[in-house]
Amino acid sequence: MSATRSTVISMRLPVESEKRLKRMANRHGWTPSDASARLVEEGLRRSEFAFIDFRDSPAGRQAYIQGSSLSVWEIMLLVRSYKGNVAAGAKHLGWPAAKVQAAVHYAEAFGEEIENALAENDATDFDALKRMLPQAEEFRSAKR
């Protein structure tokens, strides 16, 4: 989440919230100011887009669909495999179409973020994956 222009806004936090904010910032290697700005931006996005939530992942903080383990970019990968057919993607997941459509709307609004995640996924091969997940085993179908 980057902005080309920014402004300074002052706010007061309870002392306990400041401590929690600093812990979060340290965990991610951010300044408390950066963490505050990210949390505000995420809160705004949550309020503007149905079913969207944010979570930490091995690739950093990402937009997810609430109540699922799927990030928005993963849903877009699925929808693209169905040539943009939201209903087919929803049927595949066993979800209401509205949840898949929510991911599509988010991806339309934040295309660069989603395209970057998709490109990173495309660039990851099995060797990179097994370094992250040592228990991973490659499965090859007998039919090719």
Rank of each mutant, 00 (worst) to 15 (best):
S33W: 04
A97M: 08
M11E: 09
G94P: 00
E120N: 13
K19M: 08
H105A: 07
T31P: 03
L39K: 07
P14S: 09
E137I: 07
V104S: 03
I75E: 05
A103N: 05
G111N: 12
A37F: 06
E48S: 14
N26R: 07
E42K: 06
Q62G: 00
D53L: 02
E113Y: 05
E18K: 11
T7D: 10
P32L: 03
L78V: 02
N26Y: 06
F51A: 13
P96A: 14
H105W: 08
S10K: 15
V79F: 03
L77C: 11
G43H: 11
R131P: 01
A117R: 00
I9S: 11
E42N: 13
S69F: 11
S6C: 13
G84N: 07
I65A: 01
V100S: 02
S71K: 00
A59E: 02
R20D: 13
E16K: 15
Y64I: 02
A136P: 03
H28T: 03
E113V: 00
S33V: 10
D122N: 14
V104L: 04
R80G: 14
R5H: 14
I75D: 03
R12G: 07
R131K: 15
G84V: 04
V8A: 13
K143W: 09
A88N: 12
G111Y: 07
F51H: 15
D53N: 08
E108S: 07
S10C: 10
Y64T: 00
P58F: 00
L13T: 01
K130G: 04
K130P: 05
D34S: 14
E112M: 08
I75V: 15
A142P: 05
A97Y: 04
E113Q: 06
F54M: 00
V100D: 01
L70D: 02
S10D: 13
S36A: 13
D56H: 01
S17D: 14
E48R: 15
F110A: 00
Y106W: 05
F126L: 02
V15F: 12
A87W: 09
P58W: 01
A97E: 13
F51V: 05
M76G: 07
L129N: 11
P58T: 00
S36T: 09
